[in-house]
């Protein structure tokens, strides 16, 4: 699941450098509103869950996105 998520993020960002869970989104050069939208769409397609802008109010790092997905998946079960 972690590897799948990181692959997805790499695809969205078209990033050559490795991505770490501690990386701040603000510091990722490739992260912008369209990247966020692309990730939201991919997560919806892959996991069938919706991340909204409300969720992004509490998201600062790559790991926060992963935790958000994980929490939503857990609540669904």
């Amino acid at each position: 699941m972690e590897a799948r998520f990181i692959n997805m993020l790499c695809e969205v960002l078209e990033r050559d450098l490795p991505i770490d869970f501690d990386d701040s989104l603000d510091e990722l050069q490739e992260w912008d509103s369209l990247a966020a939208l692309s990730l939201i769409s991919m997560v919806d397609e892959e996991y069938g869950i919706n991340i909204g802008s409300k969720d992004f109010e509490n998201i600062n790092t790559v790991g926060d996105i992963y935790k958000c997905i994980q929490t939503k998946l857990d609540h669904r079960q």
């Binding site: 919706n50 991340i51 909204g52 802008s53 409300k54 969720d55 992004f56 109010e57």
Partner: peptide, 10 residues
């Protein structure tokens, strides 16, 4: 349902 996922600003 979409509205509920959006911030007030959005």
């Amino acid at each position: 349902a979409v509205k509920n996922t959006l911030s007030v600003e959005a």
